[in-house]
Design a protein around this nucleic acid. Structure first.
Lengths: 210, 210, 210, 210
DNA sequence: GATGAATGAGTTTTCATTCAT
DNA sequence: GATGAATGAAAACTCATTCAT
């Protein structure tokens, strides 16, 4: 561990942190674990990061930025609501296939520990949510999405669905083979596409009050 | 805190624990916090519980048992899939209105901390999930739910949606007034009812591959 | 170390702290040292004191309060300036004979580390100084002390003299036998008594400018 | 920081060290602070000094040597005791006016931290003290100083007085304007000159035992 | 000579848990 | 049952010092 730029080193350490957080959670991970994983002395970790918390913060910032960026760009594409839902679903579910450890870390800590759903991260999460909310709203404006449903509620339900499924992958309560992943992707997509499709006079369904 | 049966004392302590876990999370809560909240010396906590972990375990057992029990009984009712979805959704969303602290605790720790989605708790969660899965499966058998969708995926998506919305309530990123809660309830219900309704030849939608 | 009231325990721990601070200085003393000296686990030290700094603070408060109190009461006695100087000098120099470790600790850390000559301790030190200043000023008013000298400067010089001599004792650069201590006491007393005595027309001396 | 001889570099670094020690004390000063102040990488500090301790040692050596040298030369001058006291007092008090940071550092660490009043520094301090002691002793031999007082005690009292006043300047508990500095200088000088002046039959004063 | 990345021993502090009363 | 004093393992963090470039 000699050369490498400061940025590369920070990246290397935060990659190690992702691995450890995914494996043992934030509280379960000691700085020494991260250092060992990064093949670095733990003193060096403090050379690059002020504290344990700064590591998570840094890690979240980069990864969430990426995630939010993708959702944002999908939202901008003018391809119709259903295509957008499909694209976002695919991207999120595929992310797990590509980088399960990262998703595990995000699922384990970001989503899972209230402490980090605060400040910046909360705002990023909200940005992702509001991206979806906008898609729904635009879809409603274009008549592609029925209007009798709250777009904010939809956005929460959508990301909740994805998160839940990813959690299922992480905790192995859902099968993770390619077919199963594909099935999950289709399931969510279909659920939201059909669930939001306008129907005849709309508002038709509204189950009668119990 | 003098008389009271052992069971009452355990209950009192675990109620205090719920409050504190909701407020500060599992790791952020010290035994002393729970003791103070329960107006009890912290030494006494160890008379009633072997360890901090046993407190959460006990707490989850009772609350999840209740929750799972309700879902179970709804599943048993022969009222048709849509009515069941409606009932479960109502029950879960209403729970927050009735006992927000409990939901916060469950959301903060049970759902959110991998450590506890293990062992018994994982099994309980799975029981809830499989209850929903069974409803979907039965609905499919009765022709009330379209068949081109994986019931397990649906159950994850459903509970994920609910959890996400409850989290929104807990973190105040969703409005919590009665109208908003009602809107959330309707949104989830409609989404899943319409999203799962069989359509003409079914499998119709499947967005073409990008 | 089982019974004993909280106050007694705090006292016991701070006595141990005095010993260690005297021996190794504040920075050189580890909590573990204090704990060992007090025959107590170091965890217990934190039961009674929030932090290492609180220990010094507590220690200073009690000891300085005592010291300042004595000076204060001497100041109040109407016995003439010379008697007062004599009394204060005796008290301070004798203190070392009675409790050398305490004086060492005070000399080592309180007087010697800028950090602690702040806040409350600074104020206490100032109270001691201003006590002496008042004595000088009163002496001037009564014609017992010559007026051509700044009372504040005198008070600093006086305590500086004492401190310096105590330091000599602590660092063994001055002999500590009874005769030597007596000699020190007389020296300081005579110096200040004669040095401040009014002379004929006063202001006589003022060495001509070099 | 490219050219410059080794000696110049050592001097530059130790000047920076003086500033930092004055500002934050020895323990509060990190090598990095000194390096930053000297506009040098902290690695380089180790090219010029073996350790942090060597920096203080070096710094003391030069400064104390200077100080001791001046006192020594004053002692050698045959100008009578009172003129000597005047000269030493002026030199010491003026030093603060000329280089307050240096005095602060000396006051903060040298005088104030037992650890460094050891070995060489202790010896230097003793040299200064013994210089004054010699002046007193010589004065006694010449009949200029009364004999009923221990010269060693006088020397401690004298330097203690000066130190205390300088500390007052450093900690701003004494005014630092020119008039106040002048007043301090006169005060100490007068106190010791008159306080040590032989009186008729000498030993006259000795306050009666309480 | 310079630089600053790398190291790791050493310390404080926290807190679950035990235990004497 | 009840209390809270006592314990000590565990972990974060600091910083003097070394060393490769």
């Amino acid at each position: 561990m000699t050369a490498a730029s400061t940025e590369e080193k920070r990246a290397a350490i935060s990659e190690a942190a992702i691995k450890m957080f995914a494996r043992k959670g934030y509280h379960g991970t000691r700085i020494a674990d991260i250092a060992r994983e990064a093949k670095v002395s733990y003193g060096l970790v403090y050379h690059y990061f002020k504290s344990k918390e700064e590591i998570v913060t840094f890690l979240f910032q980069r990864k969430w930025d990426l995630l939010v960026g993708v959702i944002d760009s999908i939202q901008r594409e003018e391809v119709g609501f259903e295509r957008q839902v499909e694209a976002v679903t695919s991207f999120l579910i595929e992310s797990y296939r590509l980088n399960p450890e990262l998703i595990e870390a995000l699922v384990m800590e970001i989503t899972r520990n209230g402490k980090f759903i605060k400040g910046r991260n909360l705002r990023l999460l909200e940005k992702a949510l509001s991206g979806m909310e906008s898609m729904v709203r635009s879809g409603q404006a274009r008549g592609e999405v029925r209007t009798g449903i709250d777009p904010k509620v939809v956005s929460y339900a959508f990301f909740g669905s994805i998160e839940s499924i990813l959690t299922g992958f992480v905790f192995k309560t859902l099968p993770q083979d390619d077919a199963a992943v594909e099935r999950a992707k289709q399931g969510v997509r279909d659920l939201f596409i059909q669930g939001l499709r306008p129907i005849h006079g709309d508002r038709v369904l509204a189950a009668q009050p119990a």
